[in-house]
Amino acid sequence: MSTSFLIIMLIGMAVVTIVSRLVPMLLVDRFEPGPKLTLWLEQVPAAVIAAIVVPAMLIQHGVVDVSLDNRALWVGLATIAVAVLTRSFFLTIMAGLGLMIGVSLLL
């Protein structure tokens, strides 16, 4: 890893990330989305976040793992219960992290 390799890597990573975040923002600023596109965009948050969370909980090492060994699944379900019961972003994160650290230290 030469310094020039790292600099190009960092700039390249930053550019593609900034483009992903910036270009759509400027496009919807310039061309106000119509009702159809707006309706599509309203589907986005639930779709994106669930597409990240569900595999993170269910899949370990390339397979669906519902055994007791899969801590992400069971601690995740407990975290979901806290989220639904408390409706608090803060408590949910504290509970999730605390449970995971606790379980990891105990087992």
């Binding site: 976040i49 993170a56 992400a72 989220a83 639904v84 409706r87 608090s88 972003f89 949910t92 995971m100």
Partner: peptide, 14 residues
Amino acid sequence: FALTAMFIAILFTS
């Protein structure tokens, strides 16, 4: 797991 917990919080509280 902090990231997963955060996504769970996002999804189920808002």
